[in-house]
Amino acid sequence: MTKKEIFIVSAFTENSVWKQVLGICSALAVTNLMKNSLVMGLGVTFTLALSGLTISLLRQYIPKRVRMMVQTLIIASYVIIVDIFLKAFYPEMSKALGPYVGLIITNCIIMGRAEAFAGKNKPLDSMIDGIGAGLGYSLVLLLISFFRELFGFGSVMGFSVLGDWWYRWSIMVMAPSAFFMLAILIWIIEGPLRANRKK
């Protein structure tokens, strides 16, 4: 596969959220505001890219039996960098995201990419795969949060769009709507694909 193909496959065709339903904890939790989703997406992309690179560089030296533990530690160190960076430069964002920054460690996407791709491929390819998977994930987050913020607060990225006449749907800010939105997204994307496959 060329580098471009790797990117497209990991970002769209094999998108972690709608294809494999991985890492949806944070996809559901931070999508009430677009700003939070953007920061979360960038954090995950950063962690995915660099942990992919590191794990791929070290893949010959990590003993098979303890590889999960080593991978977790590598991922955790990058997450700490993200966390410290947010605390130092965007303290409000860090407070809004709360424990979900730390929970990037247990985000199944990162472990999944490490196991499925970075452990077997060249460093540069793994990094591109990480960036692709991260951007695919961010895309889903932004899509869901766009609708939740628009209907829930009448705004986009914090700017009021719909004005004062809009009656805010508080359900869109609450937990259940996150489940419904993700289910609808999966339905819209997977429905036609599966129908095609049947023919």
Binding site: P176, S177, F179, A183, I188, I189, E190
Partner: peptide
């Protein structure tokens, strides 16, 4: 419906449970 089989349906059930 085909697109909802598996994860999609579980998410909707979970959403109703959350409600």
């Amino acid at each position: 419906p085909a697109g909802l089989q598996g994860a999609g349906l579980s998410l909707i059930i979970t959403g109703i449970m959350a409600l």
